[in-house]
Design a protein around this nucleic acid. Structure first.
Lengths: 222, 222
DNA sequence: TTTAATAATATTGTATACAAGATTTTTTAA
DNA sequence: TTAAAAAATCTTGTATACAATATTATTAAA
């Protein structure tokens, strides 16, 4: 028992929520989880409460836990914040990334080429995450990097769908190219703007994203 | 037992950390807390873990919990993010606040006058918090408002000291006046810049803040 | 048959018990 | 007297037991 059971459990559940194996709204009752993971209720509860305060799980007092359903209003709000944080990451990365880090970023970008060519959505999704996390780290602000990653994870259950819309792969890849170039030019302001637009809410593509969301993943109060 | 004991406890401890009654580094062992609040270890642990994932408490596996000590590097990083979020709040508030909300904000600003005149640091601190939270709400982005408030709380244990430096009260008040005016003018860009500067790290006053921090509140690894 | 009230069941919140890993104290040897 | 090893103590992590609240099922009345 070197590592805590509750910690393992929490990571496992977190991953399943982020990747969409557990869908928003799905009930997470303690009994089922104790049986599934062969542990007592104590570590299960600990894990659920932790996920609760991260915002991935909703805890209804005396009524159990469920994968958090985010309302449309809140989802838009989250993207608004996300855009700003990604923009800041980009701005700082343009100013602070080392040449070595820049090389890594370009390599990562190149990894996406075969996925785009073959139209492999899931593979591209993963490369995309790596590309962005590279920029987060490039900000040389670890706290910012963590915050941005957390927020990205929180919207992840709703985002995976976004890339599946036609042409979105090509568009995303082209935007990455532009972002990469502006970082290489050390142009902080442009990088920030490009990243905001890349993530953002104002773009026409966001409306497509909104309308493509399955209604049952969303909370009603919005 | 209408409301959960663990919830009460968590709020109480959170407040004591934010207000500085519990100082960074202070050990929070379960036994002491169970005796103090007359509850069993279960709700105590739940509260501590929740505070852990908010970032106010550090949980060392099998070695107990303590009020989180933030390193100097991390503190600067947090202010960097804080400035950006406050700036975004301001920008959105300038665009979205209703006339009624604006009136509230000005009233709040006026509440600070007697505190500044009398040099009442603690009273000003509270009005200051209200002023900023008014702007958070004015962004009409509830998620952003919460995130910003959380971050403000996280740095709060280190911030209360900041206002005690000479002239800081007057300077802060004057900056608030400028911020208020630019919101009234609906000038989003200026409001954002003013707020960033108000919070920020780049200003000369921040260096004074840094040097005035008691070393024992800070983590060593920085 | 439908609805309302009550009883039975299930699930969550808290307390306590036990197990395993840290910490401290004591003992022993250099 | 100091340092290292071993034992005792303390603290945390997990399991289980009990209490309180929700949910579901059953029964009775309209």
């Amino acid at each position: 028992m070197a590592v805590k059971r509750s910690e393992e459990l929490m990571k496992q559940l977190e991953q399943e929520i982020i990747t969409g194996k557990l869908v928003p709204g799905e009930k997470l009752d303690e009994k089922t989880l104790t049986e599934r993971f062969n542990v007592s209720r104590t570590p299960v509860r600990e894990a659920l409460h932790k996920l609760g305060s991260i915002g991935l799980v909703e805890i209804l007092p005396r009524r159990g836990a469920a994968v958090r359903k985010v309302g449309l209003k809140e989802l838009i709000e989250m993207f608004e914040v996300m855009a700003e944080l990604e923009g800041l990451c980009g701005s700082l990365a343009a100013q602070r990334m080392s040449d070595e880090e820049l090389k890594q970023l370009r390599l990562c970008h190149l990894d996406a080429v075969p996925c785009v060519k073959a139209g492999e959505f899931d593979a591209y999704y993963d490369v995309n995450v790596r590309f962005h996390e590279c920029i987060y780290r490039g900000s040389h602000n670890n706290f910012l990097a963590e915050q941005t990653k957390n927020l990205r994870n929180r919207v992840a259950p709703y985002r995976r769908i976004q890339l599946r819309t036609p042409n979105r792969l090509q568009t995303s890849f082209a935007e990455h190219e532009a972002i990469l170039e502006s970082i290489e030019k050390r142009d902080a302001a442009t990088t920030s703007e490009l990243l905001k637009a890349h993530v953002t809410v104002q773009q026409g593509s966001f409306n497509n994203f909104i309308s493509s969301l399955p209604m049952d993943l969303l909370n009603d109060n919005s």
